[in-house]
Design a binder for these strands. Structure first.
Length: 253
DNA sequence: AACGTTGTCAACCGCTGGTTC
DNA sequence: TGAACCAGCGGTTGACAACGT
């Protein structure tokens, strides 16, 4: 698939023709066992649109809230499906504002609504759409990351969910000290994280602690943020984009 | 049947920021 | 302190299959 390998084939294991970076990418986007196979469900579809309105093209952040989905998958899905869908509904996919003139032409439909044979042949693709549609979409908050400064936290590109920590809906939800809530059938699963060593717990890292989203001193602010979040998500009439422009930053800082 | 167009998505590219020495 | 290295991000590419004519 795709282009030729990104690096020289010299020095690589015979038969693999992949560099380490390429292997990592393939693992992260395709081979990892916790990747959710199958179509994007309507719930996930809706959630991606909402999160994109909040976060923009920060695919890793969006993916971090959709367990089993990769940033690459969501990015592709957005580019091939959702952006067109929004346009057809008269919404600018970039700004999430109403377009003056909706795009009337629907994308050409394939005769077969299923995914391509190529995907169906893929032994890794075990479609389980029915089950996933029944199940309420579970949304995870990103794993808090230890930061050395406010700027690095706010601008970090490494604040996506850490899958390597074993988070999956099957193995029990990753534990966070953020409140649980449910929006339009979309559950935000957050648990108790008093024991997570990655989180601020009164350690000597004062600067870090002051910005950790899960320390007890931040609980009040977090609750306030989530109330605001909920209110915005529930408000259908208002223009979400205008109100939420500053929300991602307030979450991150 | 043949050929051009369109859709899909894994993989590549270039870059940034963190870590190590 | 800064160079080298590494992980990971978003944007983009291009092979392949489905579709349309």
């Amino acid at each position: 698939m795709g282009r030729a390998p990104c690096c020289s084939k010299v020095g690589l294991h015979r038969g693999l023709l992949r560099c380490g970076k390429s292997c990592r990418l393939r693992w992260m986007n395709y081979l990892r066992p916790d990747i959710k196979r199958g179509n994007i469900t309507p719930d996930e579809d809706d959630l991606i649109v909402r999160l994109h309105a909040l976060l923009g093209n920060r695919w890793s952040l969006i993916a971090g809230r959709l367990p089993g989905r990769t940033d690459n998958e969501i990015k592709n899905y957005w580019n091939t499906h959702l952006s067109k869908k929004l346009r057809s509904q008269g919404t600018d996919p970039n700004t999430h504002k109403k377009l003056s003139q909706p795009l009337l032409r629907e994308p050409k439909k394939r005769r077969n609504n299923n995914k391509s044979n190529k995907q169906q042949k893929n032994k890794f693709r075990t479609i389980n759409v029915a089950a996933s549609q029944v199940e309420m979409t579970k949304v995870h908050n990103p794993k808090p990351t230890r930061v050395s400064s406010l700027k690095s936290f706010a601008m970090s590109r490494n604040n996506s969910f850490d899958w390597s920590t074993g988070c999956s809906s099957q193995e029990g939800e990753r534990e966070f000290a953020w409140p649980n809530f449910n929006v339009n059938g979309v559950g935000f699963l957050i648990g108790d994280d008093q024991d997570d060593p990655d989180l601020g717990n009164g350690s000597d890292d004062l600067e870090c602690q002051s910005h950790e989203p899960t320390t007890s001193s931040d609980n009040g602010n977090l609750e306030k943020l989530y109330e605001e979040y909920l209110q915005l998500l529930r408000t259908e009439e208002v223009d979400l984009v205008d109100q939420m422009d500053s929300f991602p930053e307030s979450l991150l800082i």
